[in-house]
C-alpha cells in the first residue's frame, strides 16, 4: 500500500481521512502480528535447529525413539536432549501433499471447466452448492470416513498377503497408508480448488471467448487456450490455498496415514510403497501436543511448526512470483 495515498492531506474530508487512517492502522496491525508470530515460532524452535544443524532435515535413527528421548530428558531435569532427524516426517509430508495436490489439481481443473462452460444449466445449478458444501465439510469428518471405510478397504482388499510379508520385519501394512492419506486429502482439497478455479474461469471476459469462437476455433480449444490460460492466476491462487490447507491438515492425516514416522521407501516397489504408513509434520505436532511441559520437546515441536510456517510462506511467495509474468500481457484475475 502506498503511504503517500494514505497520508495525502488535501481534498479528502475528515471522515475519509479517519477511515483511511484506521484501515491503514489495521493493515499494519495485521502485518505486525504476522511478523511477531514468525519471530516467536522461530525463536521457540531455535534450540532444536541449533543443536541439530542441517541434520534436522536429514534422516537417521527412529523418530519415535528420538521423540521419546527428547521428552524424557526434559522430565528428568538432566541435560536436555535435542537430537532429532525429521526426514521421515518431511518425506511423508511431501509425498502426501504433492500426491494429493497433483491429483486434485488435474481433476479439479476438468471439473471446473466442465462446470463453467459445458455442463447443462440444471446440472450446474445443482453442482455449484454441492461443491461449496464439500469445501466447508470439517476435515475430521473426512478422517472418520477414511478410517472407517477407505483404510479397511485398502488393508483387506488391495494389499495382498505376499506384499504384507515382503516388508514384514520393517513395517506392518494395515491399510493406513500414503495411499489412503492421498485419496482422502484429495477429496478434501479438491472442492476448494474447484470453487476457486470455477470463479476464475467465470471471470474470463465473454468477449475473449466469443472472439476466439468467431475465428473458427472449436469450443474446447477456445476454452483451453483462452479461458484456462486467462484464468491462470486463479489456478495458482486455488492451488496455493489448497496446498496450504493440505500442509496444515493434522488430525485427519494422523488418523489415516498410520501415525508411524516411517519414510515410505520407493525401493520397496511401486504399489507397495504407497501402502506403507507414514506421518506428516503437522500430525506429529498433534500426536505429541500433550508433551509441551517438557522444554526440549516444546522447542522441537516449535521447530516443526517453524518449518510448516516457512513452507506456507514460501508457497505464497512462489504463487505471487508465478503470477508476475502473466500481468505483462494483462492476464489479471
Amino acid at each position: 500500500m502506498d503511504e503517500d495515498d494514505l497520508l495525502e492531506p488535501d481534498r479528502s474530508t475528515a471522515q475519509d481521512r479517519r477511515a483511511e487512517l484506521s484501515l491503514g492502522a489495521l493493515v499494519f496491525a495485521v502485518l505486525a502480528l504476522l511478523l511477531a508470530m514468525f519471530a516467536f515460532v522461530l525463536h521457540e524452535g531455535w534450540p532444536s535447529f541449533a543443536h541439530n544443524g542441517l541434520g534436522w532435515f536429514g534422516g537417521g535413527g527412529s523418530v519415535d525413539q528420538q521423540i521419546q528421548a527428547i521428552f524424557t530428558s526434559g522430565d528428568l531435569k538432566t541435560t536436555p536432549v535435542y537430537t532429532f532427524h525429521a526426514w521421515p516426517l518431511i518425506w511423508g509430508t511431501i509425498l502426501i501433499t504433492a500426491g494429493a495436490v497433483v491429483i486434485a489439481f488435474v481433476s479439479s481443473l476438468f471439473v471446473a471447466v466442465f462446470l463453467v462452460e459445458f455442463s447443462p444449466e440444471w446440472l450446474r445449478r445443482m453442482l455449484d452448492p454441492v461443491v461449496r458444501l464439500l469445501a466447508s465439510v470439517p476435515s475430521i469428518v473426512y478422517g472418520l470416513a477414511g478410517v472407517l471405510v477407505i483404510v479397511p478397504l485398502i488393508g483387506n482388499h488391495l494389499i495382498t498377503e505376499t506384499e504384507k510379508a515382503s516388508v514384514t520385519p520393517a513395517i506392518q501394512l494395515s491399510g493406513a497408508s500414503v495411499l489412503a492419506a492421498v485419496l482422502i486429502l484429495t477429496v478434501m482439497i479438491a472442492p476448494i480448488m474447484i470453487a476457486v478455479f470455477a470463479d476464475g474461469l467465470r471471470a474470463v471476459p465473454r468477449g475473449w471467448l466469443e472472439g476466439s469462437l468467431a475465428l473458427g476455433i472449436n469450443p474446447w480449444r477456445t476454452f483451453w487456450k483462452v479461458g484456462v490460460r486467462t484464468a491462470r492466476p486463479a489456478l495458482i491462487a486455488g492451488t496455493v490455498l489448497a496446498t496450504a490447507r493440505a500442509l496444515g491438515e493434522a488430525i485427519m492425516l494422523s488418523l489415516v496415514s498410520g501415525g508411524v514416522p516411517f519414510a515410505p521407501n520407493p525401493a520397496d516397489g511401486f504399489p507397495i510403497f504407497l501402502f506403507e504408513p507414514t506421518q506428516t509434520l503437522a500430525a506429529t505436532i498433534i500426536r505429541n501436543g500433550d508433551q509441551l511441559d517438557s522444554p526440549p520437546m516444546k522447542h522441537t515441536l516449535y521447530a516443526i511448526a517453524a518449518v510448516l510456517l516457512f513452507s506456507a510462506a514460501m508457497l505464497s511467495l512462489i504463487g505471487w512470483a508465478a503470477k508476475q509474468p502473466m500481468r505483462r500481457y494483462g492476464v489479471v484475475a
Binding site: L213, N218, P219
Partner: peptide, 20 residues
Amino acid sequence: TALRRRVTMVFQQPNPFPMS
C-alpha cells in the same frame, strides 16, 4: 467451427486476447 473459420467476425468492443 468450420463455418466460423470461413465467416469470421470482429466485435464492437476490441477484444484482443491477453497475449502479445
